[in-house]
Design a binder for these strands. Structure first.
Lengths: 338, 338
DNA sequence: TTTATTCACGAAACCGTTTTCGAAAAAACC
DNA sequence: GGTTTTTTCGAAAACGGTTTCGTGAATAAA
């Protein structure tokens, strides 16, 4: 650690510690002449203030926590990039925590955020989180919190989300328009709010459809790629074989392509696929994948901006606002009609 | 912020602050009875120690910095995941900083790491970094540093890399074996050490080839997708049109697929492609992409493990070691012979 | 000239924890 | 009983900044 501290500067310059401190932050109390001397020596000795001493006294860490289930994921990595960009511009530091979809890990992490380590938290809850106690404790400790993407209902704080219900509806409607008569909805977590919304959008679109044949066909999948391969394989070989498929999460897309490839099922002729995805390679898949693309980067930036707006004020109360950044439907060949 | 501190505990229990502090960390000096009382009250009041006060006094932050050019990238996001997994297990916190390939940003960030904010740094240098001054300053400040993937030569510290030269060689040799007679090497940065190594591997393999016709054909690309599309388009339309292509970085893969698609160039019949890539979708591209896959997750874990090993010891000197985690060649259709 | 005000700085408290050192009381030893 | 040792705790000094408040001198106002 750098041994040059404010005390050293003070003694070299025959000034008091307080004077040096004020000079360094350009206080009006200090004369221009003295400021110049202090700055010069600070530069010469390569002085940088100890951040923890400063944080301790000011009760402000200039650090935020980003708590996400996963990072090796096209959505979250883009969102993190958006967050980091804003944070860096504001001179804030970003702590990253992964929950791996585990509520226990999440709880432990959030407890670590209560003791002044961070000035605020950006959180995307784990899929299995149902209890809000650890989040409420954070709230009680007056740590500003902004949910992004995956929020928990009933908590009075800011949320930045996308229009999941509409997207579920839109995806389904699109398949109906492309004359799919049997549309399957591939899902993972039954808990997760955003997945439920997508599912409800799907169901609403089916219900609104003129075609009374359209029954809901929800395929529960798992977190394991090979298990999903088997599940989807059964689906496409079985009597329930759909002619339209909605992959409600990105990780179900690869298994589905593999199944179609291995079973020689033609896409989009025999079955059409639309996926919720931020995959950068969607357009070079064959067939190119129609996607509902979440505005991950924007959501990260918006969430961070909201948080920093609050951190700037004295009044730390975060509005209970719910910002919706709409996803985009990218039409590609995987849902095309010949 | 939580207002319950060690002073409050002490006064509630009629104990001194020091006693409470020792009781909390199970010091031998404190009787079992007292420890029980302290722990009970701490639990009841939901006490958590202020991390910055502790860091200030102990001169240890239990935090590391991860400095990378980018996060929305399949390699770096996986590496970060590996790092975070180890850090979380060791009770460390992870600060993320993005350099966006800018040496100036990198310099600013590394300066922030010198003042005790972090106990160590994991760094993958930006592509344009040539000066080592800011890194040497970090070294001078005795902040342990581990390079991963992208290192800077001539610095006595640990490095965790992959076998880039061999991979360049292996990729080229593979194409030669697949009877490619004109192999192009798509490159981005001329600065970046790992890219140069891949290039040298390519050149060495060409030189070793029996076929004397094999001239080096290096195509400099940019960071812009559309520009690259144009460059590759010209290449594939021009007289130099190759029958084998090595994409030395992941971001050149998508443009190349697009070009082949748009120009109706058959892969692998007319041209074969091998890419340095961690794309999770490599196998569902059509044709499925032959890749050199870097062990991103493992490299992150290894780099973090090395760093934490040093942080545990009193003697902070990091060995000048160079660990090589080999990449894997995944053969797929994009380089197949009919 | 007297009084008020501004300017430039120092002394010291403070943030919350850790750690060293000393000391009283209890226990063990001769 | 006297001495040493162990046990258990408290006082206080750090750690490196920030901030409040006070003070003497210089300047301005009266």
């Amino acid at each position: 650690m750098n041994p040059v501290n404010i005390r050293l500067l003070a003694s070299e310059l025959n000034l008091s510690i307080g004077t040096v401190s004020k000079a360094l932050k350009d206080s009006y109390e200090i004369s221009g002449e003295t400021k110049k001397r202090v700055l010069a020596l600070a530069k010469k000795l390569n002085y940088t203030p100890n951040p923890y001493a400063s944080s301790l006294r000011r009760k402000k860490s200039n650090t935020i926590a980003v708590v996400v289930p996963e990072v090796a994921d096209s959505f979250f990595s883009l969102a993190i990039k958006g967050i980091e960009e804003i944070a860096q511009a504001k001179g804030y530091h970003v702590l990253i925590y992964l929950t791996y979809e585990s509520p226990e890990k999440e709880k432990k992490i959030l407890e670590d955020c209560k003791n002044g380590r961070v000035d605020g938290v950006l959180l995307s809850v784990s899929a299995e989180t149902c209890s809000a106690t650890s989040i409420e404790e954070l709230h009680a400790a007056e740590v500003p919190l902004v949910f992004f993407d995956r929020a928990l209902e009933g908590l009075k704080t800011a949320k930045v989300r996308t229009n999941d219900f509409e997207c579920g509806y839109m995806a389904t409607q699109h398949l109906i328009e492309q004359e799919c008569r049997r549309i399957a909805f591939l899902s993972i977590s039954q808990q997760l709010d955003i997945n439920l919304k997508r599912l409800h959008g799907y169901q609403a679109a089916l219900a609104a459809s003129q075609n009374t044949n359209q029954n809901s066909l929800v395929i529960p999948c798992t977190n394991n790629d090979e298990e999903n391969y088997v599940i989807l394989s059964e689906l496409m070989k079985g009597p329930q074989k759909p002619d339209g498929v909605i992959a409600s999460v990105e990780k179900l897309i690869t298994p589905f392509y593999r199944v179609c490839n291995d079973l020689n099922i033609a896409m989009p002729a025999e079955v059409k696929l639309i996926g919720f995805s931020n995959l950068p390679t969607a357009e070079i898949l064959r067939p190119a994948l129609t996607t509902i693309t979440q505005p991950a980067f924007t959501m990260g930036k918006v969430a961070a901006t909201i948080l920093f707006n609050v951190l700037g004020k004295q009044n730390y109360r975060l509005q209970e606002e719910d910002i919706v950044v709409p996803s985009e439907l990218h039409l590609r060949v995987s849902t095309a009609n010949e």
